[in-house]
Amino acid sequence: MSAVTDSVRDRRTEVRRLIDSMEHAKVISDGHFSALGMLITDASLSADEPALVECQDGLQWLHRHYLDVGGLDGPQREQRGRILGLIDVVHWALKRLPSGLQLALQPDGHAARFLLAVSARPGLSNQQVAAALGTDETEVSRVGRKLLSAGVVWRRKEWRHNAWDLTPRGRHYLETSGLLAAEAGPDGHAGPARPAADAPPRSPDALPR
């Protein structure tokens, strides 16, 4: 956990250092934009909200510099456009974070159990997920599409079958939502939740509509 925390802190520091360098540069180079683009991509894939917020604030600060200039020349207009584009990218990256999507999965719902099953056995097919959840493949496809849109799973093709895996964002959600701890067995290992036989029926998931 400390290694992850150090990585997050280092990325946020690197974003701050890079924005500061861009602010004081006479001309913002392609190298600046490329380095910042890679940091944004890494932060988005890792669900690194502090780094993304740092980047959003810094880019908005950079953009203010162009508001005080009466007539922008061609290179300045291009730089302003690239900054505005990155602001949009960061904005939507933040919206796609589990916290921004306000995921609140029922521990015994299909969506949470889907994530836990794929976490325990990456590469499960629709049929295997359906067996783990005790439902049919139509329901797996429906829940899978919602989890795909939330950015917490990804789907690949293996011959004629789908194979499901967690994204870094999905793993981060499981680690921070308490689902893994809630579903840990007596031996301390997490596994897919299994509803009690006498449990009342619940909504399959609590994803945003």
Score class of each variant (00 low, 15 high):
R155V: 14
G191W: 03
W154S: 13
G144D: 04
V143H: 03
T135A: 10
S21M: 14
S177E: 04
E23D: 14
R96I: 00
G58N: 03
D136Q: 11
W61C: 14
R156I: 15
V90N: 05
P195M: 01
L147N: 08
R142C: 09
M1C: 06
G31Y: 09
S2E: 10
E139D: 11
A47N: 09
L86I: 04
T135G: 09
I40R: 01
K95H: 03
L72D: 04
A35Y: 04
A130C: 08
L52N: 02
A150S: 12
Q56H: 15
A3M: 12
G85Q: 07
F33K: 04
T41N: 08
D6I: 04
L180A: 01
D48K: 00
L101P: 02
R16V: 12
T41Y: 05
P98D: 00
L62E: 06
P204R: 00
R171P: 06
R145D: 14
D108S: 10
G109N: 01
N126E: 13
P208R: 03
A182P: 11
A199H: 03
S2R: 13
S7D: 13
S29W: 07
L207M: 02
R169S: 07
A196S: 05
R155C: 14
P107W: 03
A130M: 12
Q56V: 12
G188D: 02
L174P: 02
A112P: 03
